[in-house]
């Protein structure tokens, strides 16, 4: 009974009552994996005025399975936007939608309401 009680008390203490201790084993597998991941999509305004999907790999000449596949943080996203705007040229209109993975779900960190190259 004592052993079974310990098995139950560990996760109950942490997951129900919020007690944090390495001596108590909770069963919260993969609870931190994916946090901080960035989902980003890019569009560029064409000569006809319509927004079309922008392939950041093609535009920057980067391999699809290289470092650019994972945009690590908001700072790196800003860097990618800056490089895309530079390649697209002056006066280009690039719209970026991006969100950050958090414990509470997805948090919007960039909307496509404005031209990302305007700033």
């Amino acid at each position: 009974m004592a052993i079974a009680g310990f098995m139950i008390a560990g996760p109950a203490a942490e997951q129900i009552f919020g007690v944090q201790s390495p001596w108590l084993r909770s069963w919260t597998m993969f609870s931190a994996i994916g946090l901080g991941v960035i989902d980003a999509s890019f569009e560029i305004r064409g000569p006809d005025g319509a927004l079309v999907p922008l392939d950041r790999f093609a535009m920057l000449g980067a391999p699809r399975n290289g470092r650019l596949k994972w945009i690590q943080n908001p700072e790196e996203l800003a860097s990618v936007i800056k490089r895309l705007c530079a390649v697209a040229g002056q006066g280009s209109d690039i719209r970026v939608r991006a969100r950050l993975g958090t414990r509470g779900g997805w948090q919007t960190i960039h909307t496509d309401a404005e031209n990302a190259c305007a700033g």
Binding site: T28, G34, K69, W70, G101, G105
Partner: peptide
């Protein structure tokens, strides 16, 4: 307790699985 940990809106909305999928497989492209 593994199920209990996932019994919340964030997980059940699919957001956590999406994040994990992007983390390991898709990168920053949803």
């Amino acid at each position: 307790f593994a199920a209990f940990d996932k019994s919340n809106h964030t997980f059940l909305s699919g957001a956590r699985l999406e994040q994990i999928f992007l983390w390991f497989y898709a990168g920053s492209d949803y």
